[in-house]
Structure formats: structure tokens, C-alpha cells
Amino acid sequence: TETRTFDSEEEAKKAQKEAEKQGRTVTITRRDDRWEVRFD
């Protein structure tokens, strides 16, 4: 599991799309003013 933090939802969604192309499961969580993206 890898976790990355982004400043914008746009960036988080971009990372999510990339990871899903690779067949990974992605979870996006809102953390205050940041977006946390978890790759499984």
C-alpha cells in the first residue's frame, strides 16, 4: 500500500486514473485542505 497526498482534487483524480489503468485499487480521502490517495 502506498499513500500520497495532493493539494488539489484534480491532482488526486489524475493519480487515481493512472493507478486504475495499472489495475490498482485507489481510495481518495479528504484530509482538511489536502487530498490523500491510497494505492492498494
Rank of each mutant, 00 (worst) to 15 (best):
T1M: 13
T1E: 12
T1P: 12
T1W: 15
T1N: 12
T1H: 14
T1Y: 15
T1A: 13
T1D: 13
T1R: 10
T1I: 13
E2H: 13
E2N: 12
E2M: 07
E2V: 14
T3M: 11
T3Y: 07
T3I: 14
T3S: 09
T3K: 09
T3R: 07
T3W: 06
T3G: 07
R4W: 10
R4G: 07
R4P: 05
R4K: 14
R4N: 08
R4C: 09
R4T: 11
R4L: 15
R4H: 14
R4D: 07
R4F: 10
R4Y: 08
T5G: 06
T5V: 15
T5Y: 15
T5K: 07
T5F: 15
T5H: 13
T5I: 15
T5M: 15
T5S: 13
T5N: 10
T5E: 12
F6G: 01
F6I: 03
F6A: 03
F6S: 02
F6N: 01
F6L: 04
F6P: 02
F6Q: 02
F6T: 03
F6W: 03
F6D: 01
D7N: 06
D7R: 03
D7L: 08
D7A: 07
D7M: 05
D7V: 06
D7W: 10
D7K: 04
D7T: 05
D7S: 05
S8K: 06
S8W: 02
S8F: 04
S8A: 04
S8D: 09
S8R: 04
E9T: 01
E9K: 02
E9Q: 05
E9P: 04
E9R: 00
E9G: 01
E9H: 05
E9A: 05
E9W: 10
E9I: 08
E10D: 10
E10W: 09
E10Y: 08
E10G: 06
E10L: 07
E10C: 13
E10P: 04
E11K: 06
E11M: 07
E11D: 13
E11R: 03
E11N: 05
E11A: 09
E11S: 06
E11Y: 02
E11F: 02
E11P: 01
E11Q: 08
E11T: 05
E11L: 07
E11V: 03
E11H: 03
A12Q: 01
A12R: 00
A12Y: 03
A12F: 02
A12N: 01
A12S: 03
A12P: 00
A12G: 02
A12H: 00
K13H: 10
K13G: 05
K13T: 10
K13A: 09
K13D: 06
K13S: 08
K13F: 10
K14C: 15
K14G: 08
K14F: 09
K14D: 12
K14W: 08
K14V: 12
K14L: 14
K14E: 14
K14I: 13
K14R: 11
K14Y: 07
K14S: 11
A15L: 09
A15D: 03
A15G: 03
A15S: 06
A15V: 12
A15H: 10
A15N: 04
A15K: 04
A15F: 14
Q16H: 06
Q16V: 14
Q16A: 15
Q16M: 15
Q16F: 12
Q16W: 07
Q16I: 13
Q16E: 09
K17A: 15
K17P: 01
K17N: 10
K17H: 12
K17I: 14
E18V: 09
E18D: 11
E18I: 10
E18C: 10
E18Q: 09
E18Y: 04
E18F: 04
E18R: 07
E18H: 08
E18L: 10
E18T: 08
E18N: 09
E18S: 07
A19I: 08
A19H: 06
A19W: 10
A19V: 05
A19Y: 13
A19M: 13
E20L: 12
E20F: 05
E20T: 08
E20R: 07
E20H: 09
E20M: 11
E20G: 06
E20W: 05
E20S: 08
E20K: 07
E20P: 01
E20D: 06
K21G: 13
K21T: 11
K21E: 13
K21R: 13
K21N: 12
K21Q: 14
K21A: 15
K21L: 15
K21V: 10
Q22M: 14
Q22W: 05
Q22N: 13
Q22Y: 04
Q22I: 11
Q22K: 11
Q22L: 13
Q22P: 04
Q22F: 05
G23E: 03
G23K: 04
G23C: 07
G23W: 01
G23R: 03
G23S: 04
G23D: 04
G23V: 02
G23T: 02
G23M: 04
G23N: 06
R24I: 15
R24T: 08
R24G: 07
R24Y: 08
R24D: 12
R24F: 13
R24M: 15
T25I: 13
T25A: 11
T25G: 09
T25Y: 02
T25S: 13
T25V: 13
T25K: 14
T25N: 12
V26Y: 00
V26C: 09
V26K: 01
V26F: 00
V26D: 02
V26E: 02
V26H: 00
V26Q: 00
V26N: 01
V26A: 15
V26R: 00
V26S: 13
T27L: 01
T27C: 06
T27Y: 00
T27W: 00
I28F: 00
I28L: 01
I28C: 05
I28D: 02
I28H: 00
I28G: 01
I28V: 12
I28K: 01
I28N: 01
I28Q: 01
T29L: 03
T29V: 13
T29Y: 00
T29I: 11
T29F: 00
T29D: 06
R30V: 12
R30L: 11
R30E: 09
R30F: 08
R31I: 15
R31L: 14
R31D: 07
R31Q: 12
R31V: 15
R31Y: 08
R31H: 14
R31S: 10
R31F: 11
R31A: 10
R31N: 13
R31M: 14
R31K: 15
D32L: 06
D32E: 12
D32F: 03
D32W: 00
D32Q: 08
D32N: 12
D33F: 00
D33K: 04
D33T: 03
D33H: 06
D33L: 02
D33I: 02
D33V: 02
D33Y: 00
D33E: 09
D33M: 03
D33A: 03
R34V: 10
R34P: 01
R34W: 11
R34E: 09
R34G: 15
R34K: 15
R34N: 09
R34A: 12
R34L: 12
R34T: 08
R34S: 12
R34Y: 14
R34D: 07
W35V: 02
W35S: 01
W35H: 01
W35M: 02
W35E: 02
W35I: 03
W35A: 01
E36W: 02
E36T: 02
E36D: 06
E36A: 01
E36I: 07
E36Q: 04
E36F: 05
V37L: 06
V37T: 03
V37Y: 00
V37A: 05
V37R: 00
V37P: 02
V37K: 00
V37W: 00
V37E: 02
V37C: 03
R38Y: 05
R38G: 07
R38L: 11
R38K: 13
R38E: 12
R38I: 14
R38Q: 14
R38V: 13
R38T: 14
R38A: 11
R38N: 12
R38D: 08
F39V: 13
F39H: 06
F39M: 13
F39C: 05
F39I: 15
F39D: 09
F39G: 05
F39E: 10
F39P: 05
F39L: 11
D40R: 04
D40H: 10
D40P: 07
D40M: 09
D40I: 11
D40E: 15
D40L: 10
D40N: 09
D40Y: 04
D40G: 11
